[in-house]
Design a protein around this nucleic acid. Sequence first.
RNA 1: GGGGGCGUAGCUCAAUUGGUUAGAGUACCGGACUGUCGAUCCGGUGGUUGCGGGUUCGACCCCCGUCGCCCUCGCCA
Length: 600
Amino acid sequence: MSKTRSSWQRTHTCGDLSSSNEGTECVLNGWIENHRHHGQLIFLDLRDRYGVTQVVVDQETGGALLGMFETVKRLGAEDVISVRGRVRRRDADKINKNRSTGEIELVALSLTVLSEAETPPFEVHDKIEANEELRMQYRYLDLRRRPLQEALQKRAKFVTAIRNYLQQNRFIDIETPILTKSTPEGARDYLVPSRVHPGKFFALPQSPQIFKQLCMVAGLDRYYQIARCFRDEDLRADRQPEFTQIDMEMSFVEEHDVLDMVESMVVHGMREGFGIELPQPFPRFDYSEAMDKYGCDKPDLRFAMTLIDCTALAQKSDFKVFAGAVAQGGIVKGICATGAAEKFSRKGIDELTTFVTGLGAKGLAWAKITANGVEGSIAKFYEGDKGKELCAHMGALPGDLLLFVADQKRVVNKALGDLRLKVGGILSLRDPKVFRCCWVLNFPMFEYNEEKGRWQFAHNPFSAPVDWDVKDFSVDTENIRSRAYDFVMNGWELGSGSIRIHRPDLQAKVFEFLGVSKEQQRINFGFLLDAYKYGGPPHGGIALGVDRIVTLALGREGIRDVIAFPKTATAFDLMAEAPGMVSAEQMAELQISSTAKPTS
RNA sequence: GGGGGCGUAGCUCAAUUGGUUAGAGUACCGGACUGUCGAUCCGGUGGUUGCGGGUUCGACCCCCGUCGCCCUCGCCA
């Protein structure tokens, strides 16, 4: 390899040059983002990953080299060129303040066309106009734009910071199999047919869950992996068929060990990757407390407006909707939107009513607090002292808007929890530049599946119950708590984990309660259950969604915006056109056939 | 699997109640121009209105089917 640079190769990037380089001769390589012709004077905006630099070709230099001038006249968007030129400081009135390189320009001395571009299907600018479908089809063009480049660079910076942090804290980066075994519970698996084991299939991992637990049994003590996970379920703006997790597991730990470690890691990663300072400590809520105060298990802590229980007050109310709901075993809760009375017209409140009825509530009771007392749908039941009592209970002052839902607990929490977010959004309390994290602990261990008519795991089969010595899972099942925890930022669930069951007898008991036969246990998790027979340490861990964290930190719309090559909502890659057909020979070799009707 | 939205020039969009030759901006091509930076000015090319069928004298528009993209509920232990 020659140590010398070819004449066309860049000496600087398109983000490097400033007035301090005045007079130097240098070479830039890049894509033509824009060109402006003025007859005998041509401007080119040359772009690379690092920035945009204006190149000037005029008669003074270009005229002396007519060939170059004629070449430049033919150049167009996205042509790749090399320009040798001299850095010139611009006159004060010609400085472009919107660019870091705006104080200078490169006066072209010679130019080489490295690659000519056809007219692109859309204009490659920061302010994109093309729709996402087209942008995904030509993803390599979309990726030339600054917003995408920034997302990928910051994502890499974040992940690197996480790796450094974990390395320093004695975690070992361990790769686990991509070709693994299908398990019936949980999400649908992506399957891979085996050629050498005809009729058998690998599954792509939904997460490295079982393998990381085996790492603990193996005594590796602290494991991590930036792991790709695969789930064949219907997609959303925040879900892709393949996504990335920071997967971790630690031995000989309790909840606070994991939470403290992850909290410091997230703070470090957000600071290094995005320059975001997270306020600490992250509040830790019991699941039941989160449900009571926020009506959901992933509270958005950027604003208060907590749910206030008014059941006792409502019980003695003349308002039949309130008293009646309580009489039927329901509850009444309200939120107080501070200073919002004037911001919601009658029509605006009607829209909120429609919103909550769509969530199962029967209606929305409301009150505007004025200097004279209570106005609104419940006003006549809360005159005088009763109104004062209500305001005191809700912490309401004149100018505030109160909103109430009365129903069964589940309905109230769902409706009012979602309403809180909606009202918070309308009042601009959910600032995308503000970041508030929290932990939610002690989730229910089981949930009842109405369809299947049986209890099932709320989290995963290996989460330990809060009470190690629980005698009988069939007693008071819905109130049994697991040592599972979620990490939440701005109302997004970004991570989920638990302290695991490390004792085979307890694991067997859990499976037994859920009616998983010994045979099924063996088929699905036999090797894991065996492993614990040989001495499993107490351990626990977590997995954090990288795509979601980056999306949130950068204030993007969805995770497609932070993934280099994403898929559509139907799990299709518009660029690669994957999945695609395979040849009959390939199918034959795998001894499989398709029952699908051919669609083009 | 269910619900909603969208699909018209390379791109972003418009087109009255179903009615003349489907328009505009931008991109592209040609011309003018030595200080632009979303350059400007003049001219031009460019259409299977996603696809298939139907109703009608007449369909971008209405109906049926289908494909694609987006959002969402179910789903995602």
